[in-house]
Simulated assay, not measured.
Amino acid sequence: MAIKVLIVDDSPLIRGLLTEILNVAPDINVIGTAEDPFDAREKIKQLNPDVITLDIEMPRMDGISFLKNLMRLRPMPVVMVSTLTAEGAPATLQALELGAVDYVSKPKNNVAEALTEYQFELHTKIRAAALAKIRSNAERQKAVDSTPHFNASKYTFKSDYILAVGASTGGTEAIKEVVLNLPTHCPPVVVTQHIPPMFSTSFAIRLNNTAAVTVHEACHNQKLEPGHVYIAPGDDHLTIKKTALGYICQLDKGPLINRHRPAVDKLFSSVAQATKGNATGVILTGMGADGAQGLLEMRQAGCPTIAQDEATSVVWGMPGAAVQLNAAQFVEPLNKIAKKALMSACKR
């Protein structure tokens, strides 16, 4: 059965381009388009799509307002189609908070090579969205409220210890849930999330404004400190290096790995080599297999390793691949991962 897609965008040009690009795939079928949320509401009732692509800026009602109503009344997979700029980042990140599965940039009718890459990305994200686990706002809030309470302030952590986290699809919200449960004296945390360059800064700022720990977009040669989280900038690989002064962040624009820069595999591999077992690896929701091999390297180096379970993952691609490789020592629901990671970093 082909994946049924409804395109919601006020631009006839964008609706036409998206339809043309999606219908190239044999397993994807655009069953309709809508010019605004009011039109979309009727088309959803009539056509019962599997996935919606949703513009953010539209007349009569913006995409964020429509998404809020949709996730409350009829939760379903949504891929945001937005302008990937620094100015547009907060709205797109808000859409992910509200339950959108993923986002892509607006298509551009330009050179064939760029259009081919865009086609691959859009097809991949529509397929992932069709398989994603979608929860209503109430269900997601209930999951947060049911997080087991633990007093992390009483923990004493090993010195020179690191927590390394990797994620992709659904990862911004999963990372947030983990980070919000970290105490101010926790080991340094390094994070690779597949994210565009103009979004990583906004993501770090949003996390820093809500977490007890201090969250940075990582800088080259930045020293890792307890109680701080370092997020890989979009379009830069993040690795760590041990020096006489302690661990430092290293950034580079080396080749894409698993079609990604930053890549989780590269971060985990560097942590395995630099810490010699004095770290915990965590792989969260995401499509593909990036991070699975790196997590295996961490486990083989003596590091405790944790994968998010299938039931709480938006897409169980990356953690599922890690489990298949026997790279994950523990498989945990999202609301128990912070505690598990912290316990593994405790002095015995």
Rank of each mutant, 00 (worst) to 15 (best):
A89R: 11
T275D: 06
T33R: 04
A289T: 12
D55W: 02
N69W: 08
A279E: 08
I21G: 08
L13W: 08
C249M: 14
K133R: 15
C303A: 13
E87F: 06
K266W: 11
A95N: 02
R140T: 05
M80T: 00
S270P: 00
I205N: 14
I44M: 13
V104I: 08
I306D: 03
L54W: 06
K339Y: 01
Q250Y: 04
H216A: 07
P196V: 09
A204E: 09
M343S: 14
L245I: 09
R74K: 03
A130I: 09
H228K: 14
N151S: 10
T124E: 15
T285Q: 07
Y155F: 15
N137Y: 04
L84V: 09
L342R: 14
V315Q: 15
N209Y: 07
S344F: 12
I126K: 01
A112D: 13
N109L: 09
E113K: 15
L256C: 05
I64N: 00
L131R: 14
E117I: 14
I306Q: 01
L22D: 06
I283T: 05
P196Q: 10
A345I: 11
L295Y: 03
L115F: 07
T312S: 14
T124I: 06
A204L: 09
N109M: 03
A129L: 01
L70F: 00
A167C: 10
S344V: 11
V79F: 04
T19R: 14
G171I: 05
N208H: 15
A301Q: 03
V79D: 00
G317D: 11
G99Q: 04
D50Y: 07
A143M: 11
E35G: 13
N326F: 07
C346Q: 15
E117L: 15
A301M: 08
P226N: 15
P26W: 01
R299F: 02
A327V: 14
H260W: 01
L122D: 07
F66C: 01
